[in-house]
Amino acid sequence: MSSIKNLRLSTDDAAAAAPKRRFLTRLTAVLVGGMFLDGYILGIIGTVIGTISTELSFTPLWEGLTVASSLLGILVGSLPKPKGSPSPRRRPGSRTKPGV
């Protein structure tokens, strides 16, 4: 009899843990995707900065500012949005639930 109770408890625990697992999976995917994009941006800038410098006759100051601007863009993009700003997935003023 105790094995039936343990089985029932384990299925209840699994059902309760499912939303957490789904959230953690999405969170992990978003974080890995962000790290991939950051690396891609920095890899592209690092690859083409030599060509850009010769084509546009950049001084070392402008080279540094160009690379620093990409880092600044990554920083600004990682900041949380202010409270009360509309979600990009829905239009401002649209209802979240029908009939509300």
Results as ranks from 00 to 15, higher is better:
10 S>N: 12
35 M>F: 01
16 A>E: 11
38 D>T: 09
59 T>L: 08
60 P>M: 00
53 S>A: 13
21 R>A: 09
6 N>W: 06
29 A>G: 04
90 R>A: 07
47 T>K: 02
75 L>F: 04
68 A>C: 05
11 T>Y: 07
77 G>D: 07
21 R>S: 12
40 Y>P: 04
96 T>R: 03
31 L>E: 10
80 P>Q: 08
97 K>R: 15
51 T>W: 04
22 R>V: 15
14 A>P: 08
54 T>A: 13
57 S>H: 08
21 R>L: 07
81 K>R: 15
70 S>L: 04
44 I>C: 01
73 G>I: 14
9 L>E: 03
75 L>T: 11
1 M>N: 10
72 L>Y: 06
46 G>M: 12
52 I>T: 03
2 S>T: 15
35 M>R: 02
66 T>Q: 00
72 L>N: 10
80 P>F: 00
65 L>T: 13
33 G>V: 01
58 F>G: 03
27 L>A: 11
10 S>G: 08
7 L>E: 11
11 T>G: 08
89 R>K: 10
82 P>R: 03
77 G>F: 14
24 L>V: 02
42 L>K: 11
78 S>R: 00
18 A>Y: 02
81 K>W: 11
87 S>V: 09
75 L>E: 04
62 W>M: 15
88 P>Q: 04
90 R>K: 04
18 A>D: 06
32 V>M: 06
73 G>C: 12
59 T>W: 01
81 K>S: 15
24 L>G: 05
18 A>S: 11
25 T>F: 03
39 G>D: 01
26 R>P: 15
39 G>R: 01
